[in-house]
């Protein structure tokens, strides 16, 4: 029963090798989907290519439903699966800053690594920018701390926050995703991609 390493069914020593192998899968799929191209990534914001939306939400619902089914069959103990904590203000403001970085730079950190791997020089600069941005955060940490820890809500799930079952929330997410896919297919036809 999973997760295997936290329960020492697989020894801790294998953790980094597993991380490396999972990373290979991650990078391979991102590149295959076209996430190594900033033009494809930015396309979702202009309607000419919605690959980001399709891949991102299909991946989300696949992993989300997978976890719920694994838990249902007792294949995984969800109590041992890390739920990232919510600090509301830093999540919102951090997200806003990342969103600006996304539309200005055309990548996010994972996709930039993937693009560096196939030789995109713009991605190398973007990755260097991430390094600088993290350094600036580190240097201004004592100043930012009050915001960083503001409105702490613990390791809360959206389903608990809304007081609905996780299965019902999952159903809502699937319905919303399918609706967005439908809209995306229509919009992509309206905004043809200019080749260059």
């Amino acid at each position: 029963m999973g997760p295997l390493i936290p329960q020492e069914i697989i020894a801790e020593g294998w953790n980094f090798l597993i991380a490396f192998i999972i990373g290979i899968g991650f990078g391979f799929v991102l590149e295959q989907a076209g996430f190594s191209s900033s033009r494809k990534l930015a396309g979702v914001f202009y309607g000419y290519d919605a690959v980001v939306l399709k891949v991102f939400f299909t991946a989300t619902i696949t992993a989300m439903l997978g976890l719920l089914y694994f838990s249902l069959f007792d294949w995984i103990d969800l109590n041992l699966v890390w739920v990232n904590p919510t600090y509301l203000w830093s999540a919102i403001i951090g997200g806003i800053i990342m969103g600006a970085g996304f539309i200005i730079g055309g990548f996010c950190p994972g996709t930039s690594v993937c693009a560096v791997a196939i030789g995109k020089i713009d991605a190398m600069i973007f990755l260097g920018g991430i390094f600088i941005g993290i350094f600036i955060f580190g240097e201004s940490y004592s100043f930012i701390k009050p915001l960083y820890f503001a409105k702490s809500m613990g390791n809360i799930k959206l389903s608990d926050f809304l007081d609905i079952s996780s299965g019902f929330l999952a159903l809502l997410v699937v319905i919303i995703a399918l609706f967005m896919f439908y809209i995306a297919e229509i919009i992509e036809k309206k905004f043809p991609r200019k080749e260059y």
């Binding site: 800053i97 969103g99 970085g101 990548f107 600069i125 941005g133 993290i134």
Partner: peptide, 17 residues
């Protein structure tokens, strides 16, 4: 632009955990 975007994303990723 890639450099500016990277700086923002790096900073935001730390704030947003």
């Amino acid at each position: 632009l890639a450099g500016i975007g990277g700086i923002l994303f790096g900073f935001g990723s730390q704030l947003g955990r």
